[in-house]
């Protein structure tokens, strides 16, 4: 897991956003040294971060036959594909299940850890973090183990729910949603607990003391003091995970291999994009779909960077 989501736990809590100008004035004139130091990053960013996006944009307007431009034909091809809406509906449902799980679960666990300082709290924090270390395929393997009634360490639970075979479980599309949500939660929760905990930790003791003096109960303090103060972190959590969840690829792709046809190979938009690029070889359509995903993601990223105030910009 430890991908981008692990990030801003390490950043400073307060965000002095508008003081960039005064800092600049104190600094010295541009130095050649600075340009040399940033040059490798700028080159790689152009090559790997910007150029592919521009190239995909150009390709998305290119004609499938390879000569000339066809305006929005590729976009029409993609959007009118019956799998397009279905894939968005799938990730939409997944987000409806998973995001509340993530927000309530992560904030709840962070509050629990925050209320329990000392060695026990630290130990539990560490334990909650462990599953986050099993990212990607290992996390998938763990869930494959859990949901296969033939080998599961929780087979008593599966039996109680009436499941007898892996195929039987995967045949139900709502089961698939819950399984994917559980996979994402299990590998994502740990590092986000750390981030939200960082937010709770930034609440000053004076504020909490004042609440105590005013006679706030534990619940009132949580509801009326702590949660409003960590709103930016909750917003950040929601937006980042929204962007992450609707990009899902690995889990449904591998689950499709396991399920042998029980799940659509184009379950998520990214899988559809992959199919266009690989199996169908329709570069224009693949490019068009990836541009659609890119625009949505970029919009979310803009909001995260400019609105949540979590990330420090000088």
């Amino acid at each position: 897991m430890l991908d981008n989501s692990a990030q801003p736990g390490i950043t400073s809590a307060k965000t002095p956003s508008k003081n960039g100008k005064s800092v600049q004035k104190r600094n010295r004139p541009p130095s050649k040294g600075a340009l040399i130091l940033v040059a490798p990053f700028v080159v790689v960013m152009a090559l790997v971060g910007v150029l592919p996006a521009i190239y995909a944009l150009v390709e998305s307007f290119a004609s499938p036959t390879g000569n000339g431009f066809t305006a929005i034909l590729n976009y029409v091809t993609v959007i009118t594909n019956f799998r397009f809406l279905a894939s968005f509906a799938n990730v939409g449902l997944l987000l409806v299940v998973w995001l509340p799980m993530m927000i309530i679960g992560v904030v709840g666990m962070a509050l629990l850890v925050d209320a329990t300082r000392g060695r026990f709290g630290r130990l539990m924090m560490f334990i909650y973090y462990i599953p986050g270390a099993l990212a990607g395929m290992t996390n998938f393997m763990l869930w494959l183990l859990l949901i296969d009634p033939g080998v599961s360490p929780v087979n008593f639970l599966l039996r109680a729910l009436g499941a007898t075979s892996l195929d039987g479980i995967l045949a139900s599309s709502s089961n698939v949603i819950w399984i994917l949500a559980a996979m994402l939660f299990f590998e994502g929760a740990g590092s986000w607990i750390l981030i939200v905990y960082g937010g709770l930790n930034s609440i000053s003791d004076e504020v909490l003391d004042a609440a105590k003096i005013d006679g706030c109960s534990t619940w009132t303090t949580i509801w009326h003091v702590k949660l409003p103060l960590i709103k930016p972190w909750i917003g950040y959590l929601a937006l980042m995970n929204f962007a992450y969840g609707f990009q899902i690829f690995l889990e449904p792709q591998v689950l499709n291999e396991v399920a042998q046809g029980l799940i659509s190979p184009q379950w998520s938009p990214n899988q559809l994009s992959y199919t266009y690029a690989y199996s169908v070889g329709n570069t224009g359509a693949a490019a068009a779909l990836s541009i659609i995903l890119l625009v949505i993601t970029l919009a979310i990223a803009m909001v995260v960077v400019t609105r949540t105030g979590i990330l420090e910009q000088s």
Binding site: N4, P52, Q247, A287
Partner: peptide, 10 residues
């Protein structure tokens, strides 16, 4: 902040 999956196909 953009998930790196978004650039894989490009």
């Amino acid at each position: 902040v953009m998930p790196n999956t978004v650039l894989v196909i490009p």
